[in-house]
């Protein structure tokens, strides 16, 4: 695309989450509008992990937050179990959020440093959980154990006594205590060291199996996204470029933007010849005034006349591999 279209959507009754024509715009001082997300559609089956990947400012985090209506999207539809979330009252949405949980990028700032771990993890149960204190305690211990934190030692400690990796485990425990269906992970490992990153990625895979979770995994690191995702959607400047199973997408990227991202990814292999010709100074255009037609055309080496006049639509170029581009790579 950076274009539109819904050719890649699956039958509605097979999906757990279905997003259509999602638009999120923010008004900023001066009368301008930031077009953070401009009409994207995707769906997720129960038990699937969808990776959302793209540069900063492409709208991937905004999309993740729009799923739980934080804030409500400007237009478009978000369905969870066939129920339209955009039309729900704030009270009904509040109830629904127990099924849709989120973890954030910076694990240290997403926990209150001065609260005890057991209180942080038990907080959601104060409203939705069992009222029995000992039952609550048991659930906290179980979930802490499941995320690899020793409940005996950790329960009474304050959040600031833990390292980044442990804080992320505690955040995950808090998000899972109400047994959600969907976990939205917004850059959950980008603030962590490689060794912690591997631990958290393995943990998410294990928890996914154990608690039958559906994951939305938002990240800018392509290798991380490939590792954890079943399906990957590449975003650029508020639009979707390409959607495919992750192995297929990384082996045969069809959108020039996906190719650019993959070529930029540093490989831990000194024999790989580094492409020094990758255009050197191109920048993401402003989401206030995005380019006409295909939004990627200003950076695309293959752009032609049609790219500036007509927005490309999602098309299936191989089985289950969809791309929105006038000149897909073959």
């Amino acid at each position: 695309m950076a274009g539109s279209g819904k050719a890649h959507l699956r039958p509605e009754d097979e999906t757990l989450i279905r997003v259509e024509d999602l638009v999120v715009e923010y008004d900023i001082p001066g009368g301008d509008t930031v077009k953070a997300v401009s009409g994207i559609s995707f769906d997720i089956k129960a038990g699937e992990t969808l990776g959302l990947v793209g540069e900063s400012g492409c709208g991937k985090s905004t999309t993740g937050k729009a799923l739980i209506q934080l804030p409500k999207p400007s237009s478009g539809s978000v369905k969870h179990n066939l129920v339209e979330l955009t039309g729900l009252s704030s009270e009904a949405m509040r109830r629904r959020r127990t099924d849709l949980q989120m973890i954030f990028q910076d694990p240290i700032s997403s926990l209150n440093p001065l609260r005890k771990v057991e209180d942080i993890v038990a907080e959601p149960m104060k409203i939705w959980g069992p009222k029995d204190k000992s039952k609550q305690q048991e659930m906290v211990d179980n979930i802490l154990d499941a995320v690899g934190i020793d409940p005996e030692q950790a329960r009474g400690k304050l959040a600031h006594e833990f390292s980044g990796g442990q804080c992320q485990r505690i955040s995950i425990a808090r998000s899972l205590i109400l047994d959600p269906e969907v976990l939205i992970c917004d850059e959950p490992v980008s603030a962590l060291d490689v060794s912690m990153q591997a631990q958290i990625l393995n943990l998410l895979e294990d928890l996914k199996k154990k608690y039958h979770l559906t994951l939305v995994f938002i990240a800018h690191d392509l290798a991380v996204v490939k590792n954890i995702s079943d399906k990957v959607a590449v975003m650029y400047l508020g639009k979707l470029c390409e959607v495919a199973q992750s192995d297929e997408l990384y082996e045969n990227p069809a959108h020039p933007y996906s190719k650019l991202l993959l070529d930029s990814c540093p490989e831990p292999d000194p024999t790989v010849v580094i492409d020094q010709t990758v255009s050197d100074d191109d920048e993401l255009p402003s989401p206030i005034n995005p380019p006409s037609g295909c939004r990627f055309r200003t950076r695309c080496p293959f752009a032609t006349e049609i790219c500036s006049t007509e927005e490309p639509q999602m098309e299936e170029i191989r089985p289950n591999h969809y791309v929105a581009c006038h000149h897909p790579l073959t």
């Binding site: 490689v194 060794s195 990153q197 591997a198 990625l201 895979e205 690191d221 392509l222 290798a223 991380v224 490939k226 590792n227 954890i228 995702s229 079943d230 992750s246 192995d247 990384y250 993959l262 990814c265 490989e267 831990p268």
Partner: peptide
């Protein structure tokens, strides 16, 4: 410990 793009997903 680093994920690599040439490895299968999962």
């Amino acid at each position: 410990s680093i994920p690599k793009t040439n490895e299968r997903s999962h």
